[in-house]
């Protein structure tokens, strides 16, 4: 049951988006998110939507994969829509008993939903077209200016990539411990929520102990292979901008200009 969770949801295919430098994609996603929140204007959203659809076409990733990213946040989205509908004050359009729905409320809920869905799909698109390793490499490079204010960027990126490596291992281990406890009569399925949370303890404690042991072993193995932080380290795949990447940056700038123009003048 724990195996069903997939992380690092990379979709393997060969498209323009897959070939782009991870830094471009990270910056692109950032620009995209900013553009979503700059204006509350239907025409702006049409431009953004058009852009998103063409990006999805470019990525050659089936649309169903993007929707899959939406499923876990559907509940939150639903709740925010309800709250916006019920608790926004303004001109009343419909009223029955305690429930009053306002024009402003409908508007807010609509934009909220549109923003949310587009935000999730846009960022899912990035993780679908970028391998986890590329993603951490890209983040390390994009965030490297923070090094100057003593943020350990390389170390954080290294931790992220190690975490990615160990997630499946620890999940398998959790599964094993769970089965071991089940075979000794542990009960994870019945009872109220508090009861079930308490039931997880016999899984978490051994899991943590083993994770610490693994961390210790791994640190020693890294030491033995001469790891000594980011300094003096070379990269197997150094990030080098190609012409495609430069053009992608140009597209981003044009995109921002169009958004601002539409937002201000239309």
């Amino acid at each position: 049951m724990l195996r069903d969770i997939t992380l690092g949801q990379y979709y393997q295919t060969n498209s323009l988006l897959h070939r782009l430098d991870p830094r471009v994609k990270i910056m692109g996603t950032l620009v995209y998110i900013i553009s979503l929140f700059l204006f509350r204007n239907l025409f702006v959203y049409l431009v953004v939507l058009g852009c998103l659809v063409s990006m999805i076409k470019l990525s050659k990733v089936p649309f169903s994969f993007m929707v899959r990213g939406l499923q876990p946040v559907m509940m939150i989205l639903f709740l925010t829509v309800i709250c916006n509908l019920l608790f926004t004050k303004g001109t009343v359009v419909y009223s029955v008993w305690l429930i009053t729905i306002t024009r402003e409320g409908i508007e807010l809920a609509f934009y909220m939903t549109v923003r949310f869905i587009m935000l999730i799909i846009g960022s899912t698109l990035m993780t679908l077209t970028t391998t986890p390793t590329q993603l951490t490499d890209g983040l390390e490079s994009v965030l490297s200016p923070l090094n100057k204010i003593k943020v350990p960027v390389h170390e954080v990126a290294m931790m992220m990539s190690i975490a990615l490596r160990f997630i499946p291992i620890l999940m398998e281990e959790a599964d094993k411990i769970m089965k071991a406890q089940l075979s000794r009569g542990a009960d994870f399925e019945t009872g109220n929520i508090f009861h079930r949370v308490k039931g997880m303890l016999p899984i978490l404690v051994p899991l943590f102990i083993s994770a610490f042991k693994r961390a210790d072993d791994l640190a020693m193995a890294m030491d033995a292979r001469c790891y000594r932080g980011g300094e003096g380290r070379s990269k197997m795949r150094p990030l080098i901008y190609k012409n495609v990447d430069r053009r992608a940056y140009m597209v981003m700038i044009i995109y921002l200009i169009i958004i601002v123009a539409v937002g201000v003048f239309v």
Binding site: P132, T133, R165, R214, L218, A221
Partner: peptide
Amino acid sequence: DNQIIATV
């Protein structure tokens, strides 16, 4: 398992 660092 505890000495392989990368995912590939």
